[in-house]
């Protein structure tokens, strides 16, 4: 219990909780739209944004050279998400667009960090997460963005469900389909930037998708899938962070491995239940 009184521990748990609850909200829409890998594509672009922020920080002679890293990531991730959505809506193949983002994001990130006088080691914290370095400012920023994600993601759920479930019908009803598609993409970009500090850009998509993949084993109602996934996301991040307080393990990687293990176990369990009940 005394550990809970430590400000660092409080910050880690709070950041983990916020990210764990918010990420699956967007993940539900991405899985529904069969674009589970979108988060990976935007994550790589966010890395280039981190490096660009670093470069801007050092060019401006800031004492803390990575002060602009997170704002840079947000700007790049949102711009990347908007670009993906525009290309997709014009009929470009989604997988090719995604592949280009992967290469472009990583390569320009490495180049920019070099120009900023940093090394690839500086990018490691963003690649794999560095929850143990979060400050109270980071926690407040994470909290603000998480609340924004929840307000938009939950508040617009009926419309976002309609668009991600059946776009053609949604268009026939007069719903602003293009705008709502863009909302999903921008929500994904903001979520990735928020989750980046906890699990890193390489694993960020896992935190959006895994809780949803686990939750859908238990329910066939879309809204309940989202709620259960939010709970699972919170449990995964809090469990992961709690374990790393006692054991010297990388929190981001541990959270994702826990998620994969939970998915495999629930999948096997659900299969057994279905066989016993004789349902498809």
């Amino acid at each position: 219990m005394s550990l809970l009184m430590e400000p660092l521990v409080q910050r880690m748990l709070l950041a983990g909780l916020l990210v764990g609850v918010a990420s699956p909200v967007v993940g539900t829409y991405l899985v529904q739209r069969r674009m589970a890998l979108l988060g990976d594509g935007i994550g790589h672009v966010a890395l280039a944004g981190v490096a660009a922020g670093w470069l801007a920080g050092s060019a401006a002679g800031m004492a803390q050279r990575d002060a602009l890293a997170v704002p840079g990531a947000i700007i790049f991730a949102v711009a990347g998400a908007v670009a993906i959505e525009r290309m997709r809506s014009k009929g470009a193949a989604a997988d090719v667009v995604m592949a280009i983002l992967f290469y472009g994001g990583i390569a320009s990130g490495v180049l920019l960090i070099g120009l900023a006088g940093g090394s690839n080691a500086n990018l490691l914290g963003y690649l794999f997460g560095s929850i143990s370095t979060v400050t109270w400012v980071d926690v407040w920023l994470t909290g603000g963005l998480a609340v924004a994600i929840l307000i938009v993601g939950l508040g617009l759920r009926p419309a976002l469900f309609a668009v991600t479930h059946d776009q053609e019908f949604a268009r026939s009803t007069g719903l602003p389909v293009a705008v709502l598609n863009m909302v999903v993409a921008i929500l994904a970009a903001v979520t990735i930037t928020v989750a980046m500090r906890v699990v890193g850009v390489l694993l960020v998509s896992a935190l959006m998708i895994l809780p949803v993949a686990i939750a859908e084993q238990f329910t066939h109602r879309f809204s309940r899938t989202m709620h259960v996934a939010m709970g699972i996301g919170a449990i995964l991040t809090l469990t992961g962070v709690a374990i790393t307080l006692e054991h010297d393990l990388q929190p981001g990687a541990l959270i994702v491995v826990l998620g994969v293990a939970a998915y495999v176990l629930t999948n096997i369990g659900a299969g057994v239940v279905r066989r016993v009940r004789g349902t498809p």
Partner: peptide, 25 residues
């Protein structure tokens, strides 16, 4: 036409028919 990657109930699908221009809920 484009059934999503996640399950949805008939009630949820039919309720989505109540939406439209400026009716997001």
């Amino acid at each position: 036409t484009a059934s999503g990657g996640l399950a949805a109930t008939a009630l949820e699908v039919v309720t989505s028919g109540l939406l439209g221009h400026r009716t997001l809920r």
